[in-house]
Design a protein around this nucleic acid. Sequence first.
DNA 1: GGCCAGGACACCA
DNA 2: TGGTGTCATGGC
Length: 233
Amino acid sequence: MSDVRRLQDNDPEMTGRLDVIYRELFNCYGHQHWWPAEEPFEVMVGAILTQSAAWVNVEKAVASLKKTGVLKPQGIREMPLDGLALLIYSSGYYNAKASKLKALSQYLGDTYRDSLAEMCRRDTRELRDELLKVHGIGEETADSILLYACGKPVFVVDAYTRRIFSRIGLCSDRDSYREIQAVFMQHLPPDVQMFNEYHALIVQHGKDICRKRPLCPRCCLLALCGCGQQGRG
DNA sequence: GGCCAGGACACCA
DNA sequence: TGGTGTCATGGC
């Protein structure tokens, strides 16, 4: 646990600070309408394809899967690995991600007979532990699935969250994923819609900073993150 | 031509 | 347990 965190524990002002940041981001960017997908399985596929990839490239890969009619667990299971890799080529790391999509589809078939409704009825903590055992699903991807596919009140932490909130002193960049997640989940109500919007707003804000786009004046106090380094987890 | 993007895994000390 | 290499295309 970092020195920064010790100062935050039981900090009566933390909730207020997180709430102020949320409202300022929302005032700047408005609704983000995440996750941009038509159904839960598409969210899960997108969560894997977006790993270290730009969303525009993920959209192309998802469109290819849709056009081919394999954007469903059974379709991916039955698709040859090399053919699947070709369909998701634009999202990068296509061989690795094809294997991950296979593992995901196999898991859904074996465990829930492809019923995502059944999957989402599981206890949140048990489901999270289960997802983490699937090849290709790490903490951020698991939490994205829990929040955006299942509608469970889980806060998603990503690289932008770590950068921005460590720079403004609300966590340390050396904190673990769970430690940073706890900052939000212990100080904010378990509101699915707010968690949905908050993470999306952080990503949007992080992108604007990295692309050096003009920021709304309200958000200038948050314009403290730099772009990250490639290739490290 | 270099940097970065809505990470995760395998391997090694 | 923590650090490092690898996976890889596409936009700016």
